[in-house]
């Protein structure tokens, strides 16, 4: 427990530090080091009641309180496609990423519906995008959070990403009528992002090799 008045002791400590510690000799550390040491005084002996100066600093801190925009992930380089486009003044100006605390739809049962992204507005919006849009984001916003979310959404819809040819594949399972030799027929589709920008059926020679596909 610190005794009542520590000012003298603190002064002595600081003087001793100054003479012994080489950091004090380095002019580059001044005057910052001196200011920093002053803050130790209040740590060692906090004020009983908040002095006016401290109250004013606290209020100033409150006024300048960093918000969620300040805490957001920095992006210095902006993908050309992600720059804001000029839009009509009749379109809403508010950002898409407003916080909303609507509960997750209880009918959604995919395991990813409980991950940290499921409740974010971007992920929710993407759940309403059609495949074309998702593929566009995936291939043209490489390395971004948006690409990640589009991959997540595609994965939720059953698509798998092939690491070798960089295409997304979908396994179609068709239940056959009873009495046939097999109970279901499996066919594969892939999205051709390079040429036709369409989903195409895979040829009969297609063989699914699990190791070629990304585990998302």
């Amino acid at each position: 427990q610190p005794p009542r008045d520590m000012s003298k002791q603190i002064d002595e400590m600081l003087a001793q530090d100054r003479s012994q510690n080489s950091a004090f000799q380095n002019p580059l550390f001044h005057p910052g080091l001196d200011y920093w040491l002053e803050s130790k005084r209040t740590l060692l002996q906090p004020y009983e009641t908040m002095p006016a100066e401290m109250a004013s600093q606290l209020e100033s801190s409150l006024l300048n309180c960093p918000d969620s925009l300040d805490a957001d992930t920095p992006h210095l380089y902006h993908n050309v496609l992600s720059l804001p486009h000029p839009t009509s003044i009749f379109f809403p100006n508010e950002p898409i990423r407003l916080v909303s605390n609507e509960p997750v739809d209880p009918t959604k049962t995919h395991p990813k519906h409980n991950d940290i992204y499921s409740r974010t507005s971007l992920a929710r919006i993407m759940s309403k995008f059609d495949l074309d849009t998702l593929f566009f984001i995936f291939y043209h916003y490489q390395g971004t959070y948006e690409q990640f979310l589009s991959a997540r959404e595609l994965s939720i819809r059953g698509w798998q990403f092939n690491k070798v040819n960089r295409c997304w594949f979908y396994k179609e399972v068709e239940k056959l009528p009873p009495g046939m030799e097999q109970s279901e027929e499996i066919s594969w589709r892939y999205f051709d992002y390079q040429k036709s920008w369409l989903a195409r059926r895979c040829g009969a020679e297609f063989v699914y090799r699990e190791e070629e596909f990304e585990r998302i």
Binding site: P31, G32, L33, Y35, W36, S39, E53, S56, Q57, S60
Partner: peptide
Amino acid sequence: TFVFSEDQGKTENTF
């Protein structure tokens, strides 16, 4: 930390 301390020490409640 030292730059920070100096800034807040000098600017006080306009920090």
